[in-house]
């Protein structure tokens, strides 16, 4: 693997688009203590779909790009759909062949991250956050 596979143009661009909104009382706040990646997240449902997702995130490129992808993938989806996305992404990161790549959209460009165990948690953090969000408070802690 080359560095450019890990840091493709599309990843750098999406990292720049990482949402950074002011959030008062986040439903979920996750923090990676080893590197400082940090995400706060809120949402609004309409007819059981996630109509709006508000995110404040800061961290490394991999994390920020994954956050942008996650938001794109999860907007207007139901809880069940989001859970499926997250499970697929998680298996994608652990290199499971048997996944539905279509569910992952542009996030498939993060494939190289799966070869770097130390960085998988950077890509996983936003997906973990949305998973906890749709599963309500009992999973928040």
């Amino acid at each position: 693997m080359e560095l450019r596979d890990l840091y493709q143009r599309i990843i750098l661009e999406n990292a720049k688009k990482c949402p950074n909104e002011q959030i008062q009382n986040p439903s979920v706040h996750l923090h990676n203590p080893t590197c400082g990646d940090d995400i706060s997240i809120n949402c609004q449902y309409e007819n059981s779909l996630l109509k709006e997702i508000n995110i404040n995130a800061d961290g490394c490129i991999i994390f920020k790009a994954a956050t942008t992808f996650m938001k794109e993938l999860c907007i207007n989806k139901s809880k069940a759909e989001i859970e499926e996305i997250v499970l697929n992404f998680s298996e994608f990161m652990t290199n499971d062949k048997d996944i539905n790549k279509e569910l992952l959209g542009d996030a498939v460009v993060l494939q190289s991250v799966s070869h770097l165990p130390m960085r998988i948690k950077c890509a996983m953090l936003p997906f973990k956050a949305i998973y906890q969000l749709v599963n309500g408070d009992d999973n928040n802690r």
């Binding site: 560095l3 590197c35 961290g59 490394c60 991999i62 994390f63 770097l116 130390m118 950077c122």
Partner: peptide, 12 residues
């Protein structure tokens, strides 16, 4: 450049 990305660059 986030330290994590810098460290990966140096690692490579």
């Amino acid at each position: 450049i986030h330290p994590h990305d810098a460290a990966t660059y140096l690692d490579f």
